Amino acid sequence: MGRGKVVLERIENKISRQVTFSKRRNGLLKKAYELSLLCDAEVALIIFSSHGKLFEFSSIDMNSILQRYRQCCYSTQDTNIPEEGSHNLYQEVSRLRAKCETLQRSQRNFLGEDLEPLAFKELEKIEKQLDKTLSQARQRKTQLLFDKMEELRLKEQELEEENKQLKTKLEEVVLRLPAIQGVGDPSKADGYKHSEPLPTLQMGHHQFVYQEQAFDARTNIPGKSNPTPRWLS
């Protein structure tokens, strides 16, 4: 009677799991050794147990095998990445070129060019789009006009307010103008009286003389001759 089929699943019993690990580990190491010996292959085997213990086998130096492994993996990735990148880039360029051609054709159609190949539905679609665009343009134009009118109205209010302030200042200046003129003109000042010229002292003659105009006026009085100086009378 043959053995039953072994179910491959995690062994819950710790002892059984450890025994199975030891047996299969030894068998795996033996198979790796046989493979390297029979086939002249470079074999490296690394095993970590559930407790973190390391088990390894290498037909030659482990570091040299790992170095060859890294070089092989990195060189394969470096050669594959540019090919994939160039392929994706080519697809992206093709997609953008097709989109650009579609947009240019739509622009020419909106300008009324190249309409002959278009069908009735396509022309109707362009017409609806143009009507929608025209309506939006008119709404935007109306909004700009209203905004401009509001701006002018606010500016008008500011100018009116400034004009009122200037008018008030001008009225205040006009009211203060007579008082300012009175201070500047001595003849209009209150209590101002004209006085006769004051006598001046002439050094060396020991006599007071009046100013020349007053003296001439007294000496030219009709009916009098050789007037006597005032200080002798």
Results as ranks from 00 to 15, higher is better:
residue 170 L to G: 02
residue 47 I to P: 00
residue 124 E to G: 01
residue 229 P to V: 14
residue 1 M to A: 12
residue 65 I to P: 00
residue 78 D to Y: 03
residue 219 T to G: 02
residue 197 P to G: 13
residue 44 A to I: 06
residue 80 N to K: 13
residue 233 S to I: 15
residue 194 H to I: 05
residue 168 T to C: 12
residue 79 T to F: 03
residue 27 G to R: 11
residue 213 Q to K: 15
residue 223 G to E: 07
residue 187 S to M: 05
residue 185 D to F: 05
residue 90 Y to C: 09
residue 139 Q to I: 01
residue 152 L to G: 02
residue 146 F to T: 03
residue 18 Q to W: 06
residue 227 P to A: 02
residue 207 Q to A: 05
residue 116 E to P: 02
residue 81 I to H: 05
residue 7 V to P: 00
residue 156 E to M: 10
residue 196 E to D: 09
residue 176 R to W: 06
residue 39 C to R: 09
residue 52 G to I: 06
residue 123 L to P: 00
residue 53 K to G: 04
residue 48 F to S: 04
residue 214 A to H: 09
residue 174 V to L: 11
residue 160 E to W: 03
residue 140 R to F: 02
residue 6 V to R: 05
residue 229 P to G: 09
residue 26 N to P: 01
residue 58 S to P: 02
residue 210 Y to Q: 11
residue 52 G to T: 13
residue 51 H to I: 08
residue 229 P to L: 13
residue 224 K to R: 14
residue 225 S to G: 05
residue 115 L to D: 02
residue 162 E to F: 11
residue 110 F to D: 03
residue 181 Q to H: 02
residue 60 I to A: 07
residue 135 S to T: 00
residue 162 E to Y: 11
residue 209 V to P: 00
residue 55 F to E: 09
residue 11 I to V: 15
residue 97 R to A: 09
residue 2 G to E: 09
residue 81 I to E: 08
residue 32 A to P: 14
residue 79 T to C: 03
residue 82 P to N: 06
residue 117 P to C: 04
residue 184 G to A: 14
residue 21 F to D: 01
residue 63 N to E: 12
residue 122 E to W: 01
residue 90 Y to F: 03
residue 202 Q to R: 02
residue 14 K to P: 01
residue 9 E to A: 15
residue 208 F to V: 10
residue 162 E to M: 14
residue 102 T to H: 03
residue 120 F to C: 07
residue 8 L to E: 08
residue 216 D to T: 14
residue 180 I to G: 08
residue 60 I to Y: 09
residue 105 R to M: 06
residue 42 E to L: 01
residue 188 K to S: 06
residue 184 G to D: 08
residue 228 T to F: 06
residue 159 L to Y: 11
residue 139 Q to S: 02
residue 100 C to R: 12
residue 147 D to M: 08
residue 8 L to A: 10
residue 232 L to S: 08
residue 136 Q to N: 04
residue 226 N to K: 13
residue 68 R to P: 00
residue 100 C to M: 09
residue 199 P to C: 02
residue 113 E to D: 04
residue 68 R to W: 03
residue 91 Q to G: 00
residue 218 R to L: 15
residue 40 D to L: 05
residue 24 R to C: 07
residue 24 R to A: 08
residue 17 R to F: 10
residue 177 L to Q: 05
residue 94 S to C: 11
residue 59 S to C: 06
residue 185 D to G: 00
residue 204 G to I: 15
residue 203 M to C: 12
residue 15 I to F: 13
residue 32 A to M: 09
residue 174 V to W: 01
residue 165 Q to E: 04
residue 216 D to W: 11
residue 87 H to T: 14
residue 172 E to Q: 13
residue 186 P to A: 07
residue 63 N to S: 14
residue 92 E to A: 07
residue 188 K to H: 04
residue 71 Q to S: 12
residue 172 E to K: 14
residue 233 S to Q: 15
residue 131 D to C: 06
residue 71 Q to D: 13
residue 191 G to R: 05
residue 55 F to D: 12
residue 210 Y to D: 07
residue 96 L to H: 08
residue 220 N to T: 15
residue 151 E to D: 12
residue 147 D to A: 15
residue 98 A to Y: 02
residue 150 E to W: 00
residue 115 L to C: 08
residue 97 R to N: 04
residue 104 Q to R: 10
residue 91 Q to P: 01
residue 38 L to A: 09
residue 57 F to R: 01
residue 104 Q to Y: 01
residue 66 L to R: 08
residue 153 R to P: 06
residue 3 R to M: 06
residue 48 F to C: 06
residue 216 D to E: 14
residue 171 E to K: 13
residue 132 K to H: 08
